Simulated assay, not measured.
Amino acid sequence: MYLSTIDSDQPFQTPYRPAVKELIGFLTSGLEDNLHSIYLYGSVARRTAKPGSSNLDVIVVTHKSFNDSKAALFNTIKWRFQKSYPFITEVSFKTALVSDVVSLDSIFSWGFQLRHCAVCVHGENLAECFGDYEPSWEIAKHWNMDVEDWVAVYRNRIARADKTEDLIKSQKIIAKKLLRASYSVVMYRDKNWFDDPLECGQQFLRYFPEKQVEIERLGILLSGRLIAKRSVIGILDGFGDWLVKQYKKTEFKIG
C-alpha cells in the first residue's frame, strides 16, 4: 500500500495565492541562477491553512550554498510578509542543496518529505526522482525518533518562559510534535500516514485507547489555550516519557 501524495493541481486557498506568488518572486530575484526549486509543506500545501494561526512553511533548494546572504534574504521576506500578510503567523524556511536532496542518504528525509508532504511551486520538481513510499518503521523513526530530545528542549523552554505568547507558542509546538509522534509509533501497523496532528492523535487511539485523556490534553495545548506550566510539564513528563519508551521498545523489536 503506497502513501498518498498532495494534489499539486488543486488551487491554493484564496488568501494565500498572492502570498505564494510574491514569495516566488522574492526568491527568484534574490537567488537568481542559484535557485533550483521551491516547495511548500504544512497546512498551506495541504490547503487546510487557517488565517491567523497557520505558518507558511517553505523549502528552498539551491545549486550551491548561499549562507553569506541567507539571513538577509529570509529576514527581508519575513518582514515584508508581516506587513502585507499579517494573517500568516510566520514564514519558516528550510534549505537544501540539489546534490543532498537526490543523494541515497536522503531517501527517508528529503525524498519522503518532497514526495509525500510537499508541493513544488517553482522549478524542477525533485519529488519525481523518488517513487511512492510504503508505510514503514524506517519512515516513522526517521521523523520522530528524536521525540526524547524535543521533550527535553521544550520542557526547559516552558519552565523558563516568562511571556504568555512564548509559553503558548512552545505548548503548541511540542503538542504538535507529540501528536504526530504518537501516530508514527503505530504507523507501521496502521499502514497509513497522517500529517494533521489532531488526526494523528485520533488514529493513534485506535491502538492505545487508554491514552484518551492524554491525547485530549495535547489537543487543548495545540488549540493555543493558555495552560498552567505545571500542568504542561506534567503532560510532557507523563505521556512524553511513555512515548519515548514506546519508540525504544519498537526499535528493539523491529530494528
Rank of each mutant, 00 (worst) to 15 (best):
P135Q: 04
I139E: 11
E134A: 14
Q113Y: 01
H142P: 00
Y133D: 01
P135C: 09
C117D: 15
V119L: 09
C120H: 04
A127G: 15
C120E: 06
E138N: 10
E124I: 13
E124H: 13
I139S: 11
L114Y: 03
E138P: 01
K141H: 13
H122F: 14
V119F: 08
V121I: 15
A140L: 02
A140I: 06
C117P: 03
C129N: 14
N125Q: 01
G131W: 00
C117M: 11
Y133E: 00
V119I: 15
V119G: 12
I139N: 11
L126M: 11
V119E: 05
Q113S: 13
C129H: 14
A118L: 02
H116L: 06
H116Y: 11
E124W: 00
C129K: 13
I139M: 09
P135W: 00
G111R: 00
L114N: 04
C117K: 13
F130K: 04
S136R: 02
G131M: 00
Q113M: 13
H116I: 09
H116Q: 10
L114C: 05
A127T: 03
A118N: 12
V121S: 11
H142L: 01
A118K: 08
C129R: 14
H116F: 09
C129E: 12
L126K: 08
L126W: 05
